[in-house]
Every structure is written in C-alpha cells, then in structure tokens.
Amino acid sequence: MKENNTLTRLLGAMEDKYETAYAHCDYPCGIYDPHLAQLSALTVVRMVDLMNAIPKPKPENPSELLDYVHDMARAVEVKEKHAELCKHEVRVIWGDFIKPEHVKAHPDLHEIVFNIMKFGGKSKQEPDRDAAMKLLNEVNKFSEIFWEIKGVKTKRAKSPYDPHEEVVYPQL
C-alpha cells in the first residue's frame, strides 16, 4: 500500500463523487456513570424549590428588588446549566456506551432517553417542579438500566440532602 501520487491525483479529480468514510476521533475512555446526570436532575428540582422560596421584594424597597433579581438570576442560571448537563451526560452514555443488544434487552430505553431530553428541555423553559421531578424520575429509570447492564444491583433512597427526593444508588 505505497503512496501513489498519480493514482491519488486521478482519484482526487473525481472527489465529488465519493462518500466519506469516517475514522472517528473520539476518546472512548470507558468511564461511564449516570451519577452526574442524577445530581444534575436533583439540582434542577432544588433550584425550582429555591426560586419559589426567594423572598418577594417590597415594591417600595429597591434594595430588596435588586437582591431578588440577583438571587433569582443565579438560581435560573444554575437550573439552566444543570438541565443541559443532565441531557449531555445521558446523551454520552446512550451514544457511546449503549449497544443494540442493550436496547433489545431494555426496549423502553430509547423512550426513556427521549423523555429525558423532553423533560430536560421543559425544565429549562419553565420553573416547573412537576417537569423537574419527571426528569429526575426518568433519569432514575435510565440509571437502573445502566447498572443492570453493568451487573450491579441498585436501591432507591431519598437523597440525604435537599431536595430529599428519591435517587437510584448502585450497591457496590
């Protein structure tokens, strides 16, 4: 398979007619864990709770209004970031780790991922605790499937910190 510049030039003259074969560049490190997706979903729930708990400013007090806007902006920013992070983490596991045989064994897997994308998006659009909880619930289902594929048992328990909602933990 020597370099052949004449042939390369000839082939190059018809380049528009060729399809591309990808020799993908990626780093399949083999480290996959839905933990970050779960923490992100929990964070989204927590941010909605905090947004509802921020004291409403009195109209006659500009300083309170400034504090309110400031605290609300920070909570929204964290909610946005973690909803997107949750979606990203699930996409990576789904795209890089999940194989066709896993989908065959767990036929609802694609729908769960689809729901995570949808509820992640809705959690960004609105301060909706119901959507945030649905996001967390779908991520929990995704995590249970992930650990089952890995042959690791799981249990559900309430997070020992706010918002004290149910999360899937691997029993290592």
Partner: peptide
C-alpha cells in the same frame, strides 16, 4: 471513499482515499 479522521493512522490518514 475519502477518509475523514485519523483513527486509522498511520495506515491511512485524514484526506487519503
């Protein structure tokens, strides 16, 4: 086919046919 990427380097590199 035209190759995109370097996962087959050094056997074949980005841009080779």
């Amino acid at each position: 086919v035209k190759i995109s990427g370097n996962s087959m380097a050094p056997y074949a590199k980005d841009g080779d046919y």
